[in-house]
């Protein structure tokens, strides 16, 4: 999944989507994931990075990442431009 290219991110976890005018707030780990997504990393790579950095098991990361992606898409923060 790809994150919208034009969203604004700040260190405080504030996320602004200029195309809709909506703003959001995310926790530090959510911010980290969005930053990885912006760098174009694959889901697998992101999971690997999280697993290396945090005290957590693989199943939990997989489940939580899926949930987070669902939320990003529900909040219309993702766009798969290629497919469209």
């Amino acid at each position: 999944m790809e994150i919208k290219k034009n969203i604004a991110l700040s260190d405080t976890g504030f996320v602004f989507d200029p195309s809709t005018g909506n703003s959001f707030s995310t926790n530090p780990i959510g911010l980290e994931i969005i930053q990885y997504m912006r760098q174009g990393l694959s889901d697998g790579k992101i999971q690997e990075l999280i697993l290396n950095r945090y005290e957590v098991d693989k199943n939990t990361v997989e489940k939580d990442m899926e949930d987070f992606m669902t939320m990003l898409s529900k909040l219309k923060l993702t766009g798969s431009y290629e497919k469209d």
Binding site: G30, M71, L72
Partner: peptide
């Protein structure tokens, strides 16, 4: 190196 405390990633709209 000790790993950091994990917390589930969450995001919500600022209402």
């Amino acid at each position: 190196m000790k790993k950091a405390l994990y917390e589930r990633p969450v995001i919500q709209r600022l209402n």
